[in-house]
């Protein structure tokens, strides 16, 4: 099959992802401006980081005036799951040139990973053209949405009445719940919740993030290991 045919086949995988991520792409732009970003900075973040949940985490901490290195570290922590995606997809694409891997893996967001794995499990060849066909529309829309959201976000008069400052915690709650099929989910969440509230009240922000995350990870590491931990996530 030619490059353009494969690219077109990949593109057909993109509309559900584009549609379901659009509200969050727009919201990111609006919240970025609300948290002190310029329109250009909002667009730069969507274009350069290209990882929705972690971009929201960055905004949330930015609004709390957290130290810059800790913001970058928290974004890295949220994105650390990509290490596992990249190891998995890497095994599916031995036929890609090194430059194709270096370029293509930039676009390895959650749905891109899921579709590539599904295609490989069906015994189909994950071609670079197919992969980029799926990635290109998702990426372009994501960046455009940051620009639209930021441009219109600065026009919103009363952000408190619209609840803009509290939308991120609700969104993060949804992300937390999307991992609920993983082993030890409830004990980890409860441990991190208590540890982060105690740290927030005693040492203060931003250390509640580090302390709460380490508490949850330590619990997971020290509990008896059962199952293979490969449970499919709910979202």
């Amino acid at each position: 099959m030619s490059f353009s045919q494969e690219f077109a086949r990949g593109m057909r995988k993109s509309p559900p992802v584009v549609l379901s991520s659009a509200p969050f792409g727009l919201l990111f732009g609006a919240l970025a401006v609300d948290n002190g970003f310029t329109v250009g900075e909002a667009v730069l973040m969507s274009a350069a980081v290209y990882a929705g949940a972690s971009q929201m985490v960055g905004l949330d901490l930015f609004g709390q005036k957290v130290a810059p290195w800790l913001i970058a570290l928290s974004i890295f922590a949220v994105n650390f799951r990509h290490v596992l995606y990249s190891a998995a997809v890497g095994r599916r694409v031995p036929h890609w040139a090194p430059a194709q891997r270096a370029f293509g893996f930039f676009f390895l967001v959650d749905p891109q990973y899921a579709e590539a794995e599904r295609k490989a499990e069906n015994g189909e060849n994950v071609t670079f053209a197919w992969f980029m066909g799926m990635a290109t529309p998702i990426y372009l829309f994501w960046v455009a949405e940051a620009w639209i959201g930021a441009s219109f976000g600065s026009l919103i008069p009363n952000t408190y009445a619209l609840g803009l400052d509290f939308l991120l915690p609700i969104y993060f709650l949804g992300l937390v719940m999307s991992f609920r099929l993983r082993p030890l989910w409830l004990p980890i969440v409860l441990t991190s919740a208590v540890a982060s509230i105690v740290a927030y009240e005693t040492i203060g922000s931003p250390w509640h993030v580090t302390v709460g995350a380490i508490a949850g990870m330590a619990l997971a590491a020290f509990m008896p290991v059962n199952g293979n931990g490969n449970g499919e996530d709910a979202a």
């Binding site: 915690p169 992300l175 982060s196 927030y200 949850g216």
Partner: peptide, 26 residues
Amino acid sequence: PRVEASLNAVPAAVLTTLVAPAAYHG
């Protein structure tokens, strides 16, 4: 397995710390 278990816990653990204090002060 213990390293994998703690890596698996990272997203829920990190994101919870952004929810819990906000809810506590709401």
